[in-house]
Design a protein around this nucleic acid. Structure first.
Length: 438
RNA sequence: GACCCUAUCGUCCAGCGGUUAGGACACCGCCCUUUCACGGCGGUAACACGGGUUCGAAUCCCGUUAGGGUCGCCA
């Protein structure tokens, strides 16, 4: 039975690198019918707020990564937060003491390295031999502070043993720590899990992605209106490829194609542009129902007076193929639900104030007023007939009409806007715009 | 500094001894078109360097250089 884990420290911040580590662990567990465990590494008491836990839960849930055991879910191997596992650590410390593997040093307890070469067989990085003979570069690690609190390396290994993890999939920044961990496994008399160290995510300067970098936090994507499907898709593309030049894929398909051994060893630079593109693609291809589900919170938060979800649906339908961020949706649909929408001065100058624009708008209005079939194709046909009758290019009608109806020069398709708005409101807006027109 | 990992277009990913070195993002043209998108077509752009091995290296080996990581009583 495969058992993997994500073991974040509750810092109040879910790093995209952490999210990707979680994703890879989740994928591997799920595709092998195994268990995915969430363990909170908070040996440092300060990092223990409810809010910090929530950030982790929310981030994982948002990405669609569910866990089988964790602080909130329980499980056979709990507790799942290190602050509550001290008795277990005491027990393992006793084992090390009995084996003569530890000694005291200034009140702290250190593990005495056997000083033998350690071989790590890594699924991603291959076979690596570490020379542990030099105490200067491989000092005996401290496992417990004088105040009794525990150090990461020790509790991490103990928990992985106790929780019966079979695979440790983590960032490559831990590769150099792995021989230390293996020494601990051996001293305890446990078989080490399989290791897979995945490449790091770097910023545009090629440095480890830090908190200061845009897009380093999962909340960044949540707030800007990225879809979880796009972010998960993008994240798994960093260091891994589904092959066949494929890139745009749903999580369900990633699940069937994912392969731990196929992960490369190169650190990857995070490219927001590509993530952005992927987001637009996922929005474009998702169902309208899913789009509604994702967009609704943004629309509500912005206070768009859409009335009922039934009324909102057609509006969402016409912006879905265009919008790249969920957070853009309110701006893109707001004018459909109020007469108080703003007019972009530049658009007014450019289209409405053009000589003859008012007359053309009036002509279009009267042509459209006789139209009984108020649907996109019929509206389009009538507008084009009108252009021909007036002897002007279609654009001469389209541009002023767009501004009259939406206040801006960029937006959903014109005929779609007319259709959603309905005849009365469309024509009324024409009338109003004539007041601004030349 | 020591140790570990890495090295293909600006970026991500293919390639795993013989390819006109492929795809995607970004960028630049053109087409489609009611704007913006979407879509289509085309273009610019890469095997870090030096030695080997081989009939033949982006692919294998060694070195150099560069980048990253680790060397905590942080996690």
């Amino acid at each position: 039975m495969v058992r993997t884990r994500f073991a974040p420290s509750p810092t109040g911040f879910l790093h995209v690198g952490g999210a990707r580590t979680a994703l890879f662990n989740w994928l591997y567990a799920r595709q092998n019918g195994g268990k995915f465990i969430l363990r909170i590494e908070n040996t440092d008491e300060k990092r223990n707020t409810e809010e910090a836990y929530k950030v982790i839960y929310d981030g994982l849930n948002w990405l669609g990564l569910d866990w089988d055991e964790g602080p909130d879910k329980g499980g056979l191997f709990g507790p799942y937060q290190q602050s509550e596992r001290s008795a277990i650590y005491e027990k393992y410390l006793a084992v090390l003491e009995a084996g003569g593997h530890v000694y005291e040093d200034g009140g702290a307890i250190r593990f005495r390295s056997p000083r033998k070469p350690v071989i790590v067989e890594d699924i991603v990085c291959g076979r690596i031999e570490f020379d542990m003979s030099n105490p200067a570069t491989h000092p005996d690690m401290t496992i417990r502070r004088p105040d009794g609190s525990w150090i990461f390396h020790f509790v991490n290994v103990v928990d992985d043993i106790e929780m019966q993890l079979t695979h440790v999939i983590r960032g490559e920044d831990h590769l150099s720590n792995t021989p230390k961990h293996v020494e601990l496994y051996q001293a305890i008399g446990a078989t080490p899990p399989k290791f897979a160290h995945i490449p790091l995510i770097l910023n545009h300067e090629g440095k480890k992605l830090s908190k200061r970098d845009g897009g380093s936090s999962i909340t960044y994507f949540l707030d800007l209106g990225y879809t979880p499907e796009a972010v998960a898709n993008y994240l798994c593309l960093l260091g891994w490829s589904p092959g066949a030049n494929r890139e745009l894929l749903p999580l369900s398909e990633i699940l069937s194609l994912f392969d731990l051994a196929g992960i490369n060893r190169r650190n990857a630079i995070f490219d927001l542009d590509k993530c952005f593109w992927l987001n637009g693609q996922h929005i474009l291809h998702m169902s309208l129902e899913r789009f509604e589900e994702l967009a609704l919170p943004f629309v509500e938060k912005a206070g768009v007076p859409f009335g009922t979800t039934e009324a909102l649906r057609p509006a969402l339908a016409i912006v879905k193929p265009k919008v790249k961020h969920l957070s853009d949706v309110p701006d893109w649909i707001g004018f459909l639900f109020t007469e108080e929408f703003p007019f972009d001065p530049e658009a007014v100058t450019k289209s409405l104030c053009k000589p003859g624009a008012g007359d053309r708008l009036q002509a279009l209005g009267s042509a459209l007023s006789g139209l009984s079939d108020w649907t996109h194709p019929a509206i389009e046909a009538r507008l084009k007939e009108t252009a021909v009758a007036l002897g002007v290019k279609t654009g001469e009608l389209v541009h002023p009409a767009r501004v009259a109806v939406s206040g801006r020069s960029v937006g959903p398709g014109l005929y779609e806007m007319f259709e959603v708005l309905g005849k009365e409101r469309t024509l009324a807006r024409f009338e109003r715009a004539r007041g601004m027109a030349a």
